[in-house]
């Protein structure tokens, strides 16, 4: 079973790393991080920002770009097998749906890990002179991984239900935009109880609030960030349950023709 999962994972990694399309995401993310960090540290107006706010901004950009790239990747990684009709040969071999999904999930998580590795020098340069380098690295990795994992599972569940990359991508982008837009609102618009309740369950808002708590308010211990990490873990759990439901109801009929 481990071999089957490993087989799918390595197959996806090879496809991602040995093709221009796969690695182009890393170049694009690197260019975007370069642009933002260069503007923050060379533009006179932006350089007047408090350094912790700069770090908060670059951390949000890293996780935001990571979420977007992984969502686009995850929207096609499963559905491509159905659209290119390669799923048939996969399912005729002794590969179960669990191996198939977990292999693809680890491939998407590896892409996030690569994006995080690319972002490390930018975090290093923006936090230069502060004591926040390690908390910043740790929380960008932890919050980003939890957020990305939740969204991958959610998108895979949608992929198994839709079996179409166009529909999956559109739905995933709508979900991400619906969750990301309220988190960009100023705090004055979030004072009413409805907005506050929505903010508590919104995974993207929890990620940004936790980064704010660590980098701007200097509350760097895990104990001081549980109120943001627990909702993120719950989001992952709900996404996992949705994925298990979609995997359980997944029928090979239509994929395997005979």
């Amino acid at each position: 079973m481990i071999n089957m999962f490993k087989h799918i994972w390595l197959k996806e990694l090879r496809e991602q790393l040995y093709t221009w399309k796969g690695t182009l995401w890393l170049v694009i993310s690197s260019l975007l991080f370069s642009l933002i960090s260069y503007l923050l540290l060379t533009d006179k107006e932006l350089s007047l920002l408090d350094q912790t706010e700069m770090m908060w901004m670059i951390s949000k950009v890293i996780i935001g770009i990571g979420l977007l790239i992984i969502s686009i990747d995850a929207s096609s990684i499963v559905t491509n097998e159905f659209e290119k009709e390669t799923a048939e040969s996969l399912f005729l071999s002794p590969i179960g749906i669990k191996d198939f999904v977990s292999g693809k999930m680890f491939a998407s998580l590896t892409l996030w890990l690569l994006i995080f590795v690319v972002s490390i020098p930018y975090i290093f340069v923006t936090s230069s002179g502060t004591k926040l380098l390690f908390p910043s690295l740790f929380y960008v990795f932890l919050l980003g991984t939890l957020g990305v994992l939740g969204f991958i599972m959610l998108i895979f569940a949608i992929s198994l239900l839709f079996r179409s990359s166009k529909n999956t991508l559109t739905t995933s982008l709508i979900i991400i935009l619906a969750l990301a837009i309220p988190s960009l609102f100023p705090t004055t618009l979030k004072n009413n109880s409805f907005s506050a309740a929505l903010g508590k369950v919104n995974p993207i808002e929890n990620i940004f609030s936790s980064l704010d708590n660590v980098l701007v308010d200097y509350h760097a211990s895990l104990f001081q960030n549980w109120q943001f990490i627990i909702p993120l873990m719950l989001f992952c759990l709900i996404a996992l349950m949705f994925l298990l439901y979609a995997a359980k109801n997944f029928k090979k009929a239509g994929v395997v023709k005979k």
């Binding site: 260069y38 540290l41 060379t42 350089s47 007047l48 340069v125 923006t126 230069s128």
Partner: peptide, 8 residues
């Protein structure tokens, strides 16, 4: 001034 072109 947080200008840091030398490093960035």
């Amino acid at each position: 001034i947080n200008l840091n072109p030398g490093q960035v």
